[in-house]
Simulated assay, not measured.
Amino acid sequence: MADHDPIIWDNTLVTGIDIIDEQHRILVNTLNDANAKLTTDVGAAFLEQITHDLLGYALYHFETEEELMHEYGYGQDHPGDADTHTRQHREFSAKVVAARESLKKGQPISRTELLAFLNGWLVNHILNTDKQLAAFLLASAQYRQKHAHTD
């Protein structure tokens, strides 16, 4: 049985940047699916597969955000925020890699703690860090001009 309530996708999680919102939806669905499938008797191999899949998609998503940050000058205009954003991506990745390494070494990890971390991190990152980036992009004349017909 699931330990955590599923993350409900609603307007509070919408950044207004279509590509980011689409990828966030996939991450939310992936975490909700993992929570539903991770029962107390699940084996390490299943946990390892979930962390592998999640990390792979998260890295793809982080690359998307970081390309947008670079393309529209977020680091030049808001260097502290850009550094924090990138650092959060690296810290998330390192934590998931560490969990995977523990599993590969046969060291159990708490599925409850893992899910609490993943769910909490994602929601917090979207509501704070990603929304800051989105506000910057939406205020950028260059971004608005390029995406006027696609958003």
Rank of each mutant, 00 (worst) to 15 (best):
D5I: 12
V96F: 00
T30E: 12
H78Q: 06
D5N: 15
N128E: 09
F117A: 03
W9H: 13
R111I: 12
G56P: 13
G56D: 12
L103M: 11
L47K: 11
H24G: 07
H61Q: 05
Y143S: 01
H4S: 13
L13C: 09
H4G: 07
F46S: 14
T84L: 15
P108A: 14
H149L: 12
N124S: 11
I26Y: 12
H125S: 01
L118W: 05
D41A: 11
W9K: 08
D151I: 15
F62K: 00
I126A: 00
Q107G: 11
T112N: 12
I26N: 10
L133T: 00
H149S: 14
H24W: 07
H85K: 02
G16W: 04
Q88M: 12
D77A: 15
D10E: 14
H149A: 15
K131H: 04
H4K: 14
E65L: 00
Y60I: 03
V14P: 01
T64E: 00
G106R: 05
V28Q: 07
H85I: 02
A134L: 00
T112R: 15
N29C: 10
A44H: 09
L68D: 01
E48Y: 13
A34I: 15
A36K: 14
D81M: 07
I19T: 13
A44I: 08
K105S: 13
A44Y: 08
L137T: 01
D130Y: 02
Y74C: 01
L55A: 02
D33E: 14
F62M: 01
A139G: 13
L115Y: 06
A141D: 08
S140E: 02
K131R: 08
L31W: 01
H147K: 01
P6S: 11
N32V: 05
F117P: 04
Y72I: 00
W121E: 03
G56H: 11
V14Y: 08
Y60R: 07
I7G: 03
T30P: 04
E66D: 10
R87G: 06
H147L: 01
Q132K: 11
A141Q: 04
D151T: 15
R87H: 09
R144K: 06
D151G: 15
A148K: 13
K95I: 08
L13G: 07
Q132R: 13
K131Q: 09
T84A: 13
S93M: 10
D83H: 07
A34Y: 10
A82M: 04
L114R: 07
T30C: 06
A134C: 02
K131V: 03
G80D: 07
P79T: 06
G80S: 05
N35H: 03
H78Y: 09
S110I: 05
H4A: 13
H4I: 13
R90M: 12
L115V: 10
L115C: 10
S140F: 00
L27C: 04
E22I: 11
V42I: 13
N29I: 07
Q107E: 15
L122E: 00
T15S: 07
I50W: 06
N119D: 09
K146Y: 01
I109M: 03
R90D: 12
V42K: 13
H149V: 14
T86H: 14
D41T: 12
Q49W: 08
H85W: 03
S93F: 10
A98M: 05
A45H: 11
L138P: 00
G106Y: 05
T112S: 14
